[in-house]
Nucleic acid binder design. Structure first.
Lengths: 192, 192
DNA sequence: GTCTATAATCAGATAGAC
DNA sequence: GTCTATCTGATTATAGAC
């Protein structure tokens, strides 16, 4: 019913459940995030999941928002940093974030309520990236800031995912080539 | 039991089930591929899925191999084509393939039997790409063939996935920049 | 405000019937 | 060789107890 009661957003157990969901999703994929496994990981009963989150979709949305907020905060840091490109590259190459985002996109593919949320995040994230790059890239750069954002992000994230599968042929050379494009990034170490 | 009987690999129903699985996976994600939904889509009973494929993992592996074989065949075509880079770019940008591969990677994240299969495919696929590029790229190219393979592939695939979410900021410029890297690709239209 | 008992449904898999 | 009846367990979700 619409009158069903739910736990408060500040409850400690709610945080623990979100932590468990994040961990499960990262390590075993979104399909492993079930009320039972979640409860087992968090040390509570499966029904509690539905007390704090009416549906599983609600839980995924809450988790996504928590992660998105953290990423936006790191982007804001990059904007304030004297070496914004290095911070940006680290953010794009963070394996934990990359794997989670990959899972959320797969999730969005068959959970309609999540699609809008994830798409909106992606657009804001990219817009922030492009703003950071527009300020940091020298005017005479051969590639425009918007293009740099797309290429840097996609290559960085893609290499993280490939590496997780044991693929790394051409990675070092690709990273060098992208770093060359990101001229100001030249003095920053390329990702491992 | 180990003695349990299975349907033959040439049975028509087996193909219909694989087709249904491919379609379901593309449109609704791997988690939607259950014996029940599969049967509904294929017009048969759920138990038949387990007659033709002992486990769901077996089904996913059979489907992956069928798709992988088709992709290797297209790579062979690219190698024989007078304009190999255009064929290669089309192959990398095929939305159907990109979405499916994305799903399989997510699946590999929590289905151990699939990991080895998908990783091996990825490595062979990349090696083929690099061979095609090594033959097609002029000797004086500023970026090495291995790096070109990584960058081209990751940018092409990434843009397909972003577009599916309604993101396209910077895509046109990124495609132009990658096309510039792929010097011989200059006369081929960039992807939409 | 916090949690539990319970319902209804769906999933994967197998032994056995045609 | 092809398919079905059926079992066991997991999953989401709700109404109601503390």
């Amino acid at each position: 019913m619409a009158t069903r009661r739910l736990g408060t957003e500040t409850a400690k157990t709610r945080y623990v459940l979100l932590d468990a969901a994040e961990s499960l999703m990262r390590e075993s994929g979104y399909a492993a995030v079930t009320s039972r496994r979640l409860a087992a990981q968090a040390g509570c009963k499966p029904q509690l999941v539905h007390y704090y989150f009416r549906t599983m979709d609600d839980l995924f949305i809450a988790l996504f928002r928590r992660i998105a907020d953290a990423i936006f905060a790191r982007q804001a840091q990059a904007l304030a940093d004297p070496q914004p490109l290095g911070v940006l590259w680290e953010l794009m190459s963070d394996p934990a974030d990359v794997v989670l985002h990959h899972e959320f996109i797969a999730l969005a593919n068959h959970r309609k309520p999540l699609r809008a949320e994830i798409a909106a995040f992606g657009q804001q994230y990219r817009a922030n990236q492009q703003e950071i790059l527009a300020r940091a890239v020298p005017a005479g750069s051969p590639v425009s800031p918007p293009a740099l954002a797309v290429i840097g992000e996609l290559v960085a994230r893609g290499m993280v995912l490939e590496r997780a599968l044991g693929m790394d042929a051409g990675h070092a050379e690709a990273a060098t080539a992208v770093a060359a494009l990101l001229a100001a990034l030249a003095d920053t170490a390329p990702p491992r």
